Simulated scan of single mutants.
Amino acid sequence: MIRLTLYTTLGCHLCQQLEALLVTLCAGEYRLERVEISEDDALVERYGVRIPVLVDAEGRELDRGFEAPRLAAWLAERGWLEEDAWAALQRQLAGEAEPREARGATMRGGRRYLG
Protein backbone atom coordinates (compact mmCIF):
# COMPACT_ATOMS: atom_id res chain seq x y z
CA MET A 1 0.00 0.00 0.00
CA ILE A 2 1.22 3.49 -0.86
CA ARG A 3 1.66 5.71 2.20
CA LEU A 4 1.32 9.46 1.74
CA THR A 5 1.17 12.47 4.04
CA LEU A 6 -0.69 15.65 3.19
CA TYR A 7 0.21 18.84 5.03
CA THR A 8 -3.02 20.85 5.07
CA THR A 9 -5.23 23.18 7.04
CA LEU A 10 -8.96 23.49 7.60
CA GLY A 11 -10.80 24.93 4.61
CA CYS A 12 -7.93 24.59 2.16
CA HIS A 13 -9.67 24.35 -1.23
CA LEU A 14 -6.37 23.58 -2.98
CA CYS A 15 -5.89 20.62 -0.64
CA GLN A 16 -9.35 19.36 -1.57
CA GLN A 17 -8.46 19.73 -5.24
CA LEU A 18 -5.26 17.71 -4.72
CA GLU A 19 -7.18 14.96 -2.94
CA ALA A 20 -9.73 14.75 -5.77
CA LEU A 21 -6.94 14.45 -8.33
CA LEU A 22 -5.20 11.83 -6.20
CA VAL A 23 -8.34 9.68 -6.16
CA THR A 24 -8.42 9.79 -9.96
CA LEU A 25 -4.72 9.54 -10.80
CA CYS A 26 -3.16 7.26 -8.19
CA ALA A 27 -2.87 3.63 -9.27
CA GLY A 28 -3.48 1.13 -6.52
CA GLU A 29 -4.46 1.58 -2.93
CA TYR A 30 -3.00 4.34 -0.84
CA ARG A 31 -3.26 5.60 2.70
CA LEU A 32 -3.36 9.37 3.13
CA GLU A 33 -2.46 10.85 6.50
CA ARG A 34 -3.59 14.45 6.83
CA VAL A 35 -1.48 16.69 9.07
CA GLU A 36 -3.10 19.91 10.27
CA ILE A 37 -0.35 22.52 10.24
CA SER A 38 -2.20 25.27 12.18
CA GLU A 39 -1.70 23.45 15.47
CA ASP A 40 2.11 23.52 15.28
CA ASP A 41 4.18 26.71 14.86
CA ALA A 42 7.06 24.81 13.27
CA LEU A 43 4.74 23.29 10.65
CA VAL A 44 3.18 26.68 9.94
CA GLU A 45 6.68 28.10 9.44
CA ARG A 46 7.69 25.26 7.11
CA TYR A 47 4.49 24.70 5.13
CA GLY A 48 2.31 27.78 5.70
CA VAL A 49 2.72 29.31 2.24
CA ARG A 50 3.33 25.99 0.47
CA ILE A 51 0.23 23.91 1.28
CA PRO A 52 -0.90 21.57 0.06
CA VAL A 53 2.33 19.60 0.35
CA LEU A 54 2.17 15.88 -0.44
CA VAL A 55 4.97 13.70 0.95
CA ASP A 56 5.81 10.07 0.15
CA ALA A 57 7.12 7.53 2.66
CA GLU A 58 10.73 8.46 1.82
CA GLY A 59 10.08 12.12 2.65
CA ARG A 60 10.08 13.43 -0.92
CA GLU A 61 7.76 16.42 -1.13
CA LEU A 62 5.47 17.75 -3.84
CA ASP A 63 4.37 21.39 -3.72
CA ARG A 64 1.40 22.56 -5.80
CA GLY A 65 0.12 19.01 -6.34
CA PHE A 66 -3.29 20.53 -7.09
CA GLU A 67 -1.87 21.19 -10.58
CA ALA A 68 -2.69 17.99 -12.44
CA PRO A 69 0.51 17.83 -14.57
CA ARG A 70 2.71 18.24 -11.47
CA LEU A 71 0.86 15.52 -9.55
CA ALA A 72 0.86 13.19 -12.57
CA ALA A 73 4.63 13.61 -13.05
CA TRP A 74 5.29 13.05 -9.32
CA LEU A 75 3.17 9.89 -9.31
CA ALA A 76 4.75 8.64 -12.56
CA GLU A 77 8.26 8.99 -11.10
CA ARG A 78 7.23 6.50 -8.43
CA GLY A 79 5.30 4.15 -10.74
CA TRP A 80 1.99 5.14 -9.12
CA LEU A 81 0.28 6.91 -12.02
CA GLU A 82 -2.95 5.51 -13.43
CA GLU A 83 -2.02 6.11 -17.08
CA ASP A 84 -5.51 5.70 -18.55
CA ALA A 85 -7.00 8.11 -16.02
CA TRP A 86 -4.26 10.66 -16.76
CA ALA A 87 -4.88 10.38 -20.51
CA ALA A 88 -8.62 10.87 -19.97
CA LEU A 89 -8.02 13.85 -17.69
CA GLN A 90 -5.69 15.43 -20.25
CA ARG A 91 -8.41 15.07 -22.91
CA GLN A 92 -10.94 16.57 -20.53
CA LEU A 93 -8.66 19.53 -19.69
CA ALA A 94 -8.18 20.12 -23.40
CA GLY A 95 -11.97 20.13 -23.86
CA GLU A 96 -11.97 16.92 -25.88
CA ALA A 97 -13.90 14.59 -23.58
CA GLU A 98 -16.65 14.43 -21.03
CA PRO A 99 -15.57 14.52 -17.36
CA ARG A 100 -14.67 11.12 -15.97
CA GLU A 101 -16.16 10.22 -12.60
CA ALA A 102 -13.50 9.52 -9.98
CA ARG A 103 -13.00 5.87 -9.07
CA GLY A 104 -15.25 4.95 -6.19
CA ALA A 105 -17.29 8.17 -6.42
CA THR A 106 -21.05 8.04 -6.06
CA MET A 107 -23.70 10.70 -6.53
CA ARG A 108 -26.32 11.18 -3.82
CA GLY A 109 -28.66 14.12 -3.65
CA GLY A 110 -26.65 16.06 -6.21
CA ARG A 111 -23.39 15.70 -4.28
CA ARG A 112 -20.38 13.55 -5.14
CA TYR A 113 -19.01 11.32 -2.39
CA LEU A 114 -15.63 9.62 -2.64
CA GLY A 115 -14.88 6.28 -1.15
Rank of each mutant, 00 (worst) to 15 (best):
M1I: 10
M1L: 12
I2M: 13
R3L: 10
R3P: 08
L4E: 07
T5F: 15
L6I: 02
L6Y: 00
Y7N: 04
Y7T: 00
Y7C: 08
Y7I: 02
T8Q: 14
T8I: 06
L10D: 14
G11A: 01
G11F: 05
C12I: 01
C12F: 03
H13E: 14
L14R: 08
C15Q: 11
C15S: 11
C15P: 10
L18S: 03
E19A: 10
A20P: 09
A20G: 06
L21K: 01
L22F: 00
L22P: 01
L22M: 02
V23G: 02
L25G: 12
A27C: 08
G28A: 05
G28D: 07
E29M: 07
Y30V: 07
Y30N: 02
R31H: 11
L32I: 06
L32K: 04
L32F: 05
L32C: 10
E33M: 15
E33F: 08
R34G: 12
V35I: 06
E36G: 05
I37D: 12
I37V: 08
S38W: 11
S38V: 01
D40F: 07
D41S: 15
A42P: 08
A42W: 01
V44W: 04
E45K: 15
R46F: 09
Y47A: 07
Y47M: 14
G48Q: 09
G48W: 04
R50M: 05
I51N: 13
P52I: 01
V55T: 13
V55Y: 14
D56S: 11
D56E: 09
D56H: 12
A57S: 05
E58N: 15
E58G: 15
E58W: 09
G59T: 00
R60I: 10
E61L: 08
E61Q: 11
G65M: 05
A68E: 15
A68Y: 15
P69F: 05
P69S: 04
P69G: 04
P69C: 02
L71P: 12
A72S: 10
A72T: 00
A73K: 14
W74G: 04
W74Q: 06
W74L: 01
A76E: 15
A76S: 10
E77S: 15
E77A: 15
R78Q: 01
R78M: 08
W80S: 04
E82C: 02
E83V: 03
E83S: 05
D84M: 14
A85D: 13
W86Q: 03
W86H: 07
A87Q: 13
L89Q: 06
L89N: 06
L89S: 08
Q90C: 06
R91M: 12
R91L: 14
Q92V: 00
Q92H: 06
Q92G: 02
A94Y: 07
A94E: 10
A94W: 05
G95I: 00
G95R: 02
E96S: 02
A97T: 03
P99V: 02
P99D: 00
R100C: 13
R100W: 06
R100T: 10
E101V: 12
E101L: 12
E101Y: 12
A102F: 03
R103F: 06
M107D: 13
R108W: 13
R108A: 13
G109Y: 04
G109Q: 07
G109P: 10
G110L: 07
G110K: 04
R111F: 06
R112D: 03
R112E: 05
Y113M: 05
Y113D: 04
L114P: 05
L114I: 00
